[in-house]
Design a protein around this nucleic acid. Structure first.
Lengths: 230, 230
DNA sequence: CAAGATTTGTTCGTATGTATA
DNA sequence: CTATACATACGAACAAATCTT
C-alpha cells in the first residue's frame, strides 16, 4: 500500500534531501525531473511540494533556469503579518499596533548590547543614512529606503542575524501596513529624522539611557496615535 | 493577453477574495471547483496557490471536508527557523543561539509592562504550571508541556497577541532544536524550575529588577553553553 | 542573431481516498 | 450501506523563460 501522507511527506523528504546532500543557500537543487525519479512521485506532487518550500523561502525557483536552495528569510512572516493587518476590518489597528510595539520592545531590549557593540566603532554609515533621509525629505521624495537602511545598519553590529531580520521584518510590516489603513496623518517628519540623529548620538556617546530615550522619541508620535484609537 | 505571473497572481487574487468577501478565520472557503470558475484558472493552479496559502497558515485544508480560512499563526516562522537550525552543520549552533538570545531579549524587554499588567492579578495559573513541572520532573516525565504553558500564561496578560505568539514560536524552535544538535548535557533541572518560581515571585511582588534577575537565571546555564561553543 | 536544449509554468483528464448526510 | 461532495494524486501535453551553441 502506498502512503502519500497528504503530500507533506514529499516536503519532508525534499528537506531531508537538502540536509543529506549538504546543500547550502544558493546551491542548485536537482531538477523537477530528477526529483520525480528519485522520490518516485508525480511531477505535480513534486511541484506542489516545491511550492510549499518556495513560500517558506527554503528554495528559490527561477523560471526557465532552475531551482536553488533559498535564503530562509523571514519573508513568510512578513506576508502573514501583512495579511493579518489587512484582515483587521475598518478601524481595527490591532495587528499594526502590536507590530509597532514589538519594534519598540526589540529596539529597547538590545540597548545595552548595542552600546557595547558600537563602542569605538565607526558610526559614519548610520550617520550617512540619516543624511540621505534628510536630503530625500528636502527633495520631497520618500525616505523609506534610507530609513530601512539606517535601522539595518544600527542592528548589524549586534552579530545576531535573526534579530536583524526580525527588525527588518517588523519594519516592512510597519511601513507597508501604514498606508493601507485609515491611519492618522503623518506628524512632523523633521522630528522623526532628528530622533534618528539622537540614536546615533547616544551610541556615539555610549549612553544607554540616552539611547532608550531616543528610541521612545522615535516611536512616540505613532505609538500615541495607535494606542489612542484603541 | 493573459497574465499568469508565475502563479503568484492566483495567490494574490485568492487573498483579495478573502478580504473582499469579508471572511474570517474558521470560515469556509469556496471549493476548488468554484475558485476554478471565479478565477478562470486550472484546478492545478488553484491547488498550488492553496498549497502556498496553506503553508502560510492563511487557509487550512481538511481532506475530504473542505478548506477554511486559517488562523495565521507563526507556524511558518517556526518551520523556517527549525530548518535553518538543522542546516547549520556540525557544531555550528548559531541559529539556536540566536533564537535563545531573542527569547531573552523578548522576556527582558517586557519586564516593566508585565509587572504592571500582573499588578493585583491572580498568578495562580502560572504558579500551577510550575507545580506541574515539578511533579512531572519528580515522576521522571518531560515537563515541556507545563513549561510551554507557563510562559504562555505569563505573556498572556500583555494583551499583545503577536508577542505571545513570538514567544511561543521561539520556545518551540528552542525546545525542538535542542535535541537535534550535539548540545551540552542538561544542567540541574531543579535550578531551572526554581527560576520559574522566581519569575512568579517577582511579578507577585511587582519587582521589575527581581524579574529581570530571574529571567537571566532562567536562561543563564544554556546561554553560557551556547556562547561558550562559539 | 538564430536555433535548439533545458527547465519551470499551466492546463486537462482521470482515478482514488476521505468525510458527511 | 449508499450517495454525494470534496480533496489528493497521477500522467501527459503544451507554453514560456533562460541558457548554450
Amino acid at each position: 500500500m502506498r502512503r502519500n501522507d497528504a503530500g507533506g511527506d514529499v516536503v519532508a523528504r525534499i528537506k531531508d534531501l537538502i540536509l543529506r546532500t549538504g546543500l547550502h543557500p544558493g546551491d542548485p537543487m536537482p531538477t523537477e525531473a530528477r526529483l520525480v525519479e528519485e522520490l518516485g512521485v508525480a511531477r505535480s506532487s513534486v511541484r506542489e511540494a516545491m511550492r510549499t518550500l518556495s513560500s517558506l523561502d527554503i528554495v528559490e525557483v527561477r523560471h526557465g533556469h532552475g531551482t536553488f536552495v533559498g535564503r530562509m528569510s523571514l519573508a513568510p512572516l512578513v506576508d502573514g503579518l501583512l495579511f493579518r493587518a489587512r484582515l483587521n476590518d475598518g478601524n481595527d489597528l490591532r495587528t499594526l499596533r502590536e507590530v509597532v510595539q514589538a519594534r519598540i520592545a526589540l529596539d529597547l531590549s538590545i540597548g545595552q548590547r548595542l552600546v557595547e557593540a558600537w563602542r569605538d566603532e565607526d558610526l559614519a554609515p548610520a550617520r550617512a543614512e540619516v543624511e540621505r533621509m534628510r536630503a530625500a525629505h528636502a527633495a520631497g521624495r520618500s525616505f523609506a529606503d534610507a530609513d530601512q537602511a539606517f535601522h539595518a545598519a544600527v542592528l548589524s553590529k549586534l552579530g545576531n542575524e535573526l534579530m536583524m531580520q526580525l527588525g527588518d521584518a517588523f519594519w516592512q510590516v510597519h511601513t507597508s501596513a501604514l498606508p493601507l489603513l485609515d491611519v492618522p496623518p503623518a506628524t512632523d517628519i523633521r522630528l522623526t529624522i532628528e530622533a534618528h540623529d539622537a540614536i546615533v548620538d547616544a551610541l556615539e556617546a555610549g549612553d544607554t539611557t540616552a539611547y532608550e530615550k531616543a528610541v521612545r522619541a522615535h516611536y512616540s508620535p505613532l505609538d500615541r496615535n495607535l494606542t489612542a484609537s484603541e
